[in-house]
């Protein structure tokens, strides 16, 4: 079963994203800060990570960079979708430089997020 890790310190958004992705038929794990998110990613080896940028302890960019630098090649290449309220072009650039696969600006539509998650996973991963 496709496994998606959602890391966001805002429980309302985390649960909305988890609900919507869960409805797609994926297994979803949720973490509420960057450090816990990175630890969970190393332990669970998810197929995709949805990552908030502004979080306590480790921010999303740092988690993303740590994943890309991981010794495990599967984890180093895991698709990462960055969620952020930072909408400026320079912020988007920083996100991609840190290794993000895609970038979604808040406020976002859950439908759009689901489309992006689908696109970032291998074809047929969600059985849709």
């Amino acid at each position: 079963m496709t496994h998606v890790l959602v890391v966001d310190d805002d429980p309302a958004i985390a649960s909305l994203v988890a609900f919507k992705i869960g409805r797609m038929g994926a297994r979803v794990s949720v973490e509420a800060d960057g450090e816990a998110g990175l630890a969970a990613a190393r332990q669970l080896r998810p197929d995709l990570v949805v990552l908030d940028w502004m979080m306590p302890r480790m921010n999303g960019l740092e988690v993303c960079a740590a994943l890309r630098a991981d010794a495990d090649p599967q984890l180093a290449s895991v698709p990462v979708i960055l969620l952020t309220a930072k909408a400026q072009e320079s912020d988007v650039e920083r996100g991609f430089v840190a290794g993000a696969t895609d970038y979604v600006v808040k406020p976002f539509s859950p439908r759009e997020l689901v489309s992006r998650v689908t696109a970032a996973l291998p074809p047929g991963a969600l059985g849709a």
């Binding site: 805002d10 309302a12 958004i13 909305l16 808040k106 406020p107 539509s109 859950p110």
Partner: peptide, 14 residues
């Protein structure tokens, strides 16, 4: 401001 708006609009959409 954007984070609660995301939650409100996202949940409404769902």
């Amino acid at each position: 401001l954007r984070t609660p708006m995301t939650s409100i609009l996202g949940n409404l959409e769902v």
